[in-house]
Nucleic acid binder design. Structure first.
Lengths: 223, 223
DNA sequence: GTCTATATTCGGATAGAC
DNA sequence: GTCTATCCGAATATAGAC
């Protein structure tokens, strides 16, 4: 097995395991067993368990953030430099949810891994929060530009709520399914994204302000 | 030190530590050091670290759920058996946020501990999810009764989103503060509760349906 | 570069004195 | 009931052969 194959095997195995269980609960022995490599390989390739987590987290968030950012820029081009609130939210919400609900198990695990890891308090993660922070600031800026007359406070709260719905849906979709007795369909990715975007939009734009323009029963709801 | 004092000291110390760091990262040695008791006390009083977590979690959620339920029943009485959606949401959202933003550090820690613990995957927590599950079903039922003509799917999604906003606000208020450059005031508890309830309400009732009645610029926004 | 075998640390649990 | 001292397992990390 080549060096690259070994590294990749470790990364993907760790991702799958950390998608379901917390950092402390997954041991290096679990990881190497799942990866089909030996115990020493992790330290050889990554230095330590902490560094493995950090490298994996950076690797995945880089790809996700790039995807989000590409959609944001595409929306900016389309809107002539002023993308709509909806387009901005779609760029924020779409990628993580498409990953999470993807039939590709590795993709799906990546989404769950990231949300799980982002709340871990182990040292290596702390170093990375800045990265994510700057990423979110781009979206905050875009939203401020799209809503120049809106109180900034409302915009930050709206962004906060959008992130909340993304996280909860990625991590706790199982409970929703059970709670609804299977009624809530978690296979219809587009419907879920629309739901989150719709609610986040109301939080941002405000129901009162939106009311006059809100002839759009576009598809955010089923009834 | 009496038996009760020791137990309480352990519980409160564990709560404070687990409010900030994950289960695996906090050792029993950390806990007993903070509690000012000796190591053997944990096993004597609780049996094991796992059981300590379980007992603490049950203890706190019992109190919180009772508070929520009391508000729900009060709303039912007031509304003649049919509480408004807003009243139901207030009963769901109010207690955890008042705890979290309370000046009482122990109360505040309790709120963060519960949200943190609820995503832990260690065995003892798994056993308790049923408790929480039934608790949420009460709210789902209340919401269904309050919105008889609404698609059930929308109701479950609305509840899901409400829980998402509660969790994110309890755990990630610090990031929101930084992201907004200190603009978002996390001291105004009532304002925050109103914001979450307002957004959850729109998610449940639907913006189009709400629009005509939504003359209420009551206080959900600042602008 | 890979793997086995081992060193070392750490943390949960317990025995037994008081 | 409380505490000290200790055991034992587990998990990370490493040394050294191949």
């Amino acid at each position: 097995m080549s060096s690259d194959q070994t590294k990749t095997a470790i990364l993907t195995a760790a991702e799958m395991l950390w998608a379901e269980r917390s950092f402390g609960e997954v041991t290096m022995r679990d990881i190497v067993a799942a990866a089909g490599v030996n115990l020493a390989a992790v330290n050889y390739h990554f230095g330590s368990k902490d560094e493995l987590l950090a490298e994996l987290f950076i690797s995945r968030t880089t790809v996700l953030n790039r995807e989000r950012f590409a959609e944001l820029k595409a929306a900016e081009l389309e809107g002539g430099g002023r993308p709509s609130v909806e387009a901005i939210l779609l760029a924020l919400v779409g990628p993580p949810l498409r990953w999470c609900l993807s039939p590709d198990l590795q993709r799906s695990a990546a989404a769950r891994f990231m949300t799980r890891a982002s709340v871990e308090t182990v040292p290596p993660i702390k170093k990375i929060v800045d990265r994510e922070f700057r990423h979110l600031q781009r979206f905050a800026t875009a939203l401020r530009l799209a809503l120049p007359h809106r109180d900034e406070v409302d915009i930050y709260w709206g962004l906060h709520f959008a992130l909340a719905m993304i996280r909860q849906t990625v991590t706790d979709s199982e409970r929703l399914k059970k709670l609804s007795g299977g009624l809530c369909d978690l296979n219809d990715t587009d419907d879920i994204i629309r739901r989150i975007v719709a609610v986040a939009k109301v939080a941002l734009v405000g129901s009162a302000t939106a009311a006059p323009i809100a002839v759009r029963a576009s598809g955010s709801r089923k009834s």
